[in-house]
Design a protein around this nucleic acid. Structure first.
Length: 639
RNA sequence: GGUCUCGUAGCUCAGUUGGAUAGAGCAACAGCCUUCUAAGCUGUGGGUCGCAGGUUCGAAUCCUGCCGGGAUCACCA
């Protein structure tokens, strides 16, 4: 039982003994003492004043005295302004350290055959463009979550759903057919996912041009727009004004409606989009030529993705492809239709009425019978359910999809999936640039490969300048550069509360000093260096620390922090937040560096103290390593 | 407009079930390497926790209203 719980029990016992009243356990508040005050645990006495009918100071003293007398681990206590600080004996803490030493996987709970299975979906790329910074956040969060879940005793299956079909894929295929002249990754030397992405952009440019022409040609059909000079200027001006408080007057409203109509007409009737839709129909009909091109181009993209995934150090246990799941989804929807869960409109499209759940009506199949996003997710769920005995399903998907998952949860529940109702949408915030959202069509995205490469270059330059890896082979040094670069990037992303939007400024490169991954990695390397030096001096680290020495303030802080690590892991698992782990690792590293600066370790003359500190260092190193593993960050022996 | 979400130092972010004097890093300035790795340590300056009420012994944290940013409400995925 943890000391926190023990103290809680003591407080309850003390109140009963001293004031003759049974209290609810949430009145017995025990927390970790603030760093700037003396003590290890703090009991808040304010909630007890009504019962004690004494001043905060007196109440604190009463309870402090009782606890000190009844627990041999309690060395002393003090009362400050209604807060009772309990000080524990040195040997209590040192025994705790010796227990931690025994656990190599300290902080982790192992899964067994009966453990619940958590499936975590993350990444979910589209095969029409390369991965960017937004995907990086998704991948890093998903990967870290899977490790945190594993450390909390879950069986974990990491999964990926590849959006490999749909109109967006047809767009890049069509552009490549039209303007590609048979270009391949081999012929151009361009990475496959980027090559395909280039044609997606090309499509968009040509499409926009067609829309413009169409609008110009049809402007005369709209009498409301007779007078205007520039269509897009007028339209966006009206849009802007609609958002303001004044809004639009009747005349402007008519114009606005006309703009909307014309714009919609052009978007739906541009030759390119008609061709792309035709291509999608052919694809769904398994037209051999279209299908072959589709396979070829997706093949290029997968090769490109593999490179990026490897670079990021993420992987999957099972990959699903929408091209396999969308028909399953369609069948599910049709069977739901038979059971009257859904309904068909006159135009043949299929819908689900969710107004009783406070939501809208949701389209499940288009009038031409093709699938939409939601249909595919239903099919994917079905296949996963067939493949695995899922207890908990977690979707790592951006917060722009909050509504989608609300709907999906209800649909899956209606369709009889027992985990549908409490599926977890791990909803994370967007990565924004200082000037706003990233837009792939406008070329303002931060490319994943470029970013990692740039970080590795910076890490290499910095290491060489500092000369820390002299004596390492080129290959070994390169491994460390990559470790540091990824450490910086991963920590930078993961330390932020996942549900919040975060800002990334590409102009200011990610730091390697201060509250960063390399700072924590450095701390680990520093600790390992001590053991190398110790070995040189012929000092071996004992299995147990002597418990007969007094520990200092920094040592006490360190022990308290590492002993709290299992609670941190549990908390991170409970709220699905790698940031909790990241902040812990930083605080621990920071505390250790202060200790390192203030206390001699190998130079300590008292042998027992020296040994105690060495054992403590060992455990701090292990805790840092284990914490960073949960973030998917490796720590070096030397840097 | 409806729904959701965020607002903490110049910038990027922490802040536990409500708890003590709201913390880090970056940037700026001033120090510390003839002892275990200076990617480190120490110090200085920097705050109306968006605003106004409310609940409470106690509010950055909970409630209400307002202001501001973002997302979403597609036969795009």
């Amino acid at each position: 039982m943890s000391m926190e719980l023990q103290l809680k029990g003591k407080v309850i016992a003390a109140v009963k003994e001293l004031y003759g009243q049974e209290i609810n356990e949430n009145l017995a508040q025990v927390q970790i003492t603030r760093k700037d005050l003396t003590g290890d645990f703090t009991i808040v006495v304010f909630p007890l004043l009504k019962i004690s009918k004494k001043s905060p100071e007196e109440t604190g003293k009463d309870i402090g005295e009782y606890i000190k007398a009844s627990d041999e681990n309690v060395a002393n206590y003090n009362v400050v302004k209604g807060f009772l600080n309990i000080e524990l004996a040195s040997d209590y803490w040192l025994k705790l350290v010796n227990n931690i030493t025994k656990e190599e996987k300290y902080g982790y709970q192992a899964a067994n055959d009966d453990s619940p299975l958590m499936m975590i979906e993350y990444s979910s790329p589209n095969t029409n463009k390369p991965l960017h910074l937004g995907h990086i956040r998704n991948n890093l969060l998903g990967y870290s979550l899977s490790r945190i879940a594993a450390a909390n005793g879950y069986k974990v299956v990491k999964t990926n759903i590849v959006n490999d079909r749909g109109i967006h894929i047809c767009k890049s295929m069509l552009a490549w057919k039209k303007w590609g002249n048979g270009a391949t990754p081999e012929s151009t030397g361009i990475k496959g996912d980027k090559l395909v992405g280039d044609y997606y952009v090309k499509f968009d440019q040509e499409y926009k041009a067609e829309i413009k022409t169409l609008i110009a040609n049809h402007l005369k059909n709209y009498s409301e727009l007779d007078e205007i000079k520039d269509f897009s200027e007028t339209y966006s001006a009206l849009k802007a004004q609609k958002k303001t408080k004044e809004g639009l007057d009747d005349e402007q409203n008519k114009q606005f409606k006309a703009c909307e109509d014309l714009s919609k007409y052009a978007e739906n009737n541009a030759p390119l989009i008609l061709e792309a839709r035709e291509m999608l129909r052919k694809w769904e009909a398994k037209d051999p030529e279209v299908y072959k091109d589709w396979e070829t181009m997706n093949g290029w993209v997968y090769k490109g993705f593999d490179v990026t995934y490897k670079k990021l150090g993420v992987d999957f246990d099972k990959i699903y492809y929408e091209s396999d799941t969308y028909t399953v989804g369609r069948d599910m929807v049709l069977s739901g239709l038979e059971k009257d869960l859904f309904y068909r409109r006159d135009d043949n499209s299929v819908w689900c009425n969710m107004t009783s759940e406070g939501l809208d009506e949701k389209l499940l199949l288009r009038k031409d019978g093709t699938s939409v996003y939601m249909t595919q997710d239903i099919g994917t769920a079905k296949l996963r359910f067939d493949d695995f005995d899922i207890d908990k399903m977690v979707y790592v998907v951006g917060n722009e999809q909050d509504y989608h998952f609300q709907v999906l949860s209800i649909l899956l529940d209606k369709l009889g999936f027992n985990w549908g109702k409490d599926l977890v949408h791990f909803s994370y915030g967007m990565v924004e640039l200082p000037e706003g959202k990233m837009k792939s069509r406008e070329g303002t995205v931060v490319d994943a490969d470029d970013l990692v490469d740039e970080m590795v270059n910076t890490a290499r330059e910095m290491s060489k300048e500092l000369g820390k890896l002299d004596g390492y082979s080129e290959e070994d040094a390169e491994t460390v550069y990559k470790m540091i670069a990824l450490g910086a990037l991963k920590y930078f992303i993961l330390k932020v509360d996942p549900k919040k939007n975060m800002t990334f400024n590409p102009a200011e490169s990610i730091d390697f000093n201060g509250n960063t991954g390399p700072f924590i990695q450095y701390t680990h390397a520093r600790i390992q260096s001590i053991f190398r030096k110790a070995a040189e001096k012929g000092i071996s680290v004992a299995a147990e620390a002597p418990t007969n020495v007094e520990i200092g303030e920094k040592e006490n802080n360190l022990i308290r922090m590492i002993s709290n690590f299992p609670n941190i892991v549990a908390e991170a698992g409970r709220v699905f937040s790698p940031a909790v782990i990241a902040n812990f690792a930083y605080d621990l590293a920071k505390e250790y560096n202060q200790f390192y600066h203030d206390y001699p370790i190998l130079f300590e003359e008292d042998e027992d103290k020296r040994m105690m500190r060495l054992v403590l260092c060992k455990n701090v190193g292990k805790t840092i390593k284990n914490a960073m593993w949960l973030l998917g960050i490796d720590v070096p022996e030397k840097m």
